[in-house]
Write a protein that binds this DNA or RNA. Structure first.
Length: 323
DNA sequence: AAGGCGTGGCT
DNA sequence: TAGCCAAGCCT
């Protein structure tokens, strides 16, 4: 749950999660939709699908007993080398060094290593160093200590070198180049995607669908979506869109645009320009492609929603605009 | 092996 | 503001 996530952000999710899923079998027996619902708003939703998948693996292949060997822990979906080493050392005292963002930064500075830490090929180099410095007799303590050192002392900006117990043997401290380490490959330029959500509603229900493709927000629910290559600025432009015409042809003149709003939603390497088009129709079909009608008041506590959809539902006043 | 995957806090 | 970062992993 805390992969790429701060404790402060994940803690309330963790607390709710373990109350609803107190053990592996409870989690394994739950539906993926419910696990995703518990994860709503935390991001990186593949983690939710993976932990659910892992619970089923443990139930079916490990007799509901969490595996205690490194290779078996590593085999679980969503558990990579870092998490396997962390869980293995903390829970079972297995002698495997953790290699996370903190450790990369420390090792890079401590040994003056300029290999880019976000390049997969560099992992071998840093793992070699980590193994040389590792204390297999005190695996858990060593791993906890080096991660705490990275979190509290050897921080990304303005590290507290004067408080660091490794100061005397640190390469970056002697060369005063800690500011240039670790080296990272420049991030890709952020691309923009244009999402046009059609809130097709009869005043009581709106059409919803589940995201099934291998893409952002997989498994979560959304309104009917038309993705375009560029901004669709006004309703007449939208009406010229072929996909829009196909989707809405059955409504004809009974369909009225009642409202629009636009937001910009920033992801790590995507900007989502999102338009919401509220379309009032007389009668909703039981099914429109993958979409089906849902009572508006029930959407948010029934389905797992992407943050922008949740925000829209919480903010938008349906009764004022469409009832 | 590079690219994709969320959200929120901090500067 | 815009950019960077946070207990990575999967494909």
């Amino acid at each position: 749950m805390l992969q790429q996530t701060r404790v402060d952000q994940g803690l309330p999710y963790y607390e709710r999660f373990v109350i609803r899923f107190p053990d592996i079998e409870t989690l394994a027996d739950a539906s993926e939709d419910e696990v995703l619902k518990m994860w709503q708003g935390l991001g990186y939703y593949s983690r939710a699908r993976n932990i659910h998948h892992a619970a089923k693996t443990i139930r079916d292949k490990f007799h509901s007993q969490f595996p205690e060997q490194y290779e078996n822990i590593l085999s679980l979906k969503g558990i990579g080398e870092y998490t396997a080493a962390a869980v293995g050392s903390f829970a079972f005292d297995l002698a495997h060094p953790v290699l996370d963002g903190n450790v990369y930064r420390i090792l890079s500075r401590y040994t003056g290593n300029t290999a880019p830490i976000n390049k997969p090929a560099s992992r071998k180099i840093f793992l070699t160093t980590a193994l040389e410095l590792f204390d297999p007799e005190h695996s858990a303590e060593h791993n906890q200590a080096i991660m705490e050192l990275g979190a509290l002392i050897c921080t990304p900006a303005e590290p507290r070198c004067n408080e660091c117990p490794l100061q005397g043997s640190c390469d970056a401290f002697h060369k005063k180049n800690w500011n240039e380490l670790p080296v990272k490959i420049l991030a890709q330029p952020v691309k923009t995607r244009h999402l046009n959500y059609l809130i097709i509603t009869d005043g009581n229900c709106a059409l919803m669908q589940q995201r099934m493709k291998k893409d952002i927000w997989k498994g979560l629910f959304e309104f009917v979506l038309i993705e375009t290559n560029q901004t669709v600025a006004d309703f007449s432009s939208l009406c010229e869109n072929q996909e829009f015409r196909t989707i809405t042809k059955s409504f004809g003149k009974n369909m009225i645009l009642t409202d629009t709003s636009k937001i910009s939603h920033k992801l790590t390497h995507r900007i989502l320009e999102i338009y919401f088009w509220v379309l009032r129709v007389k009668t909703l079909p039981a099914k429109l492609n993958l979409a089906f009608p849902v009572e508006i008041d029930k959407i948010n506590h029934t389905f797992a929603l992407p943050k922008p959809i949740e925000n829209f539902l919480v903010t938008y006043n349906f009764h004022e605009h469409v009832s």
